[in-house]
Write a protein that binds this DNA or RNA. Sequence first.
DNA 1: TCTGGGGTCCTAGGACCC
DNA 2: TCTGGGGTCCTAGGACCC
Length: 421
Amino acid sequence: MKTILHVDMDAFFVSVEELYNPGLKGKPVVVGGKPDQRGVVSAASYAARKFGVHSAMPLRTAYKLCPQAIFLEGQPQRYREHSRMVFEALNAFSPRVEMASIDEAYVDLTGAERLHGPPLEAAHKLHERIQAKTRLNCSIGIAVSRLLAKICSDQAKPNGILWVIPGCEARFLAPLDVRKIPGVGKVTEKALHDCGIRRIGDLAHLEEAFLEKRFGQWGLALAGKARGLDAGGWFTGEVGDQDEPKSISHEHTFHEDTTDVVLIEATLARLSEMVASRLREHRLFARTIQLKLRYKDFSTFTRARTLDHATQLDIDLVSESRRLFHANWTGKPVRLLGVHTSNLQFEQGQLDLIAGDKHDRWKKALSAVDRIRDRYGSQSVSIASAMQGGFRERVHETPADLPGRHPEKKDAGEDGGHGSG
DNA sequence: TCTGGGGTCCTAGGACCC
DNA sequence: TCTGGGGTCCTAGGACCC
């Protein structure tokens, strides 16, 4: 029988802001941006929530509901730092820790009774240590599975601890709204309501066959979740496996919709640079590059291309995202642009390995750029085309002698990776 | 109430191969 | 050239989470 803790920080971004400005305590605070900006609420203090403000709500709506709230842009660097402090407090308590996001973590305390005492006592101890080390409040759920522990910590908010005693899982879950199941959002909730299912207990009593017929694979997963089981997809791994990202992307919503091609191309270059820089940070190479395009009416399109070599070079992402843009843009005003990479791998692949020293020189130049950005900020250096104003000349094509699109070499040396060579 | 940005996972159809 | 079925890769879209 496992003992899993789910630790969830209370109003994390707001609480971190309060550490730096205690005057914010008790007041309605909204983190996410200025009230007249395009954007949504990332976090709201409990005082703001009383007015109906909640995360994911448009900032303009939050302002209408609570005009006296203090609106903050938010400081991601600060939140990452405090997230690391939380991790260190947890890791000192148990080595089996996994940060599930910036403000929540799983801790596996299976078999740790001799060290930390019974589950509830252990959780209290951990709660105090987190408070002592970070001056932040959290809520803790304790149960036999990750899924249940997560549902539990939510029920424990704010600043509480809740333990579902083994054997009582079904009784705990039955009265809860189906929306409490992680993975059940607006759409699934409505579909379930349409079948007359409102509570987790209703779901648990249904035949699996019915759920499978109505919802396919997802229906089977739901049946498991209604019983508190960790099956399927996420949650199968042991607490503690952290792996590399599967995709890296950046996107930008314009303050005002635009048809300005210079601005659009500059934005694609900037987004590409940000993505490439993070690929290099992770020592990853991407094979698939995807452009995301959203128009005024919020209609959204994605267009992708998989290269026969993997890359982490700005120039490849810039030229491919621009090519995709020009091949697909209708000319209508653009609201959002995004550059997304996936199909990530650790090596650049054979074509680049045989590529010559031009490629090395690009790499060296780019790692120098990354170092300057680390020191002076991401705006300090850019390839010329990403800059606005004054720079009308653009470097926009991969130089012919750089590695990259060489169609005649397509598939060279690729035979399924068994190296028949 | 006019809707961010960074991710994960899933589905479904078509191409292509065996 | 009448035609099956499985596997894998690719693309596009969508639900969902924090």
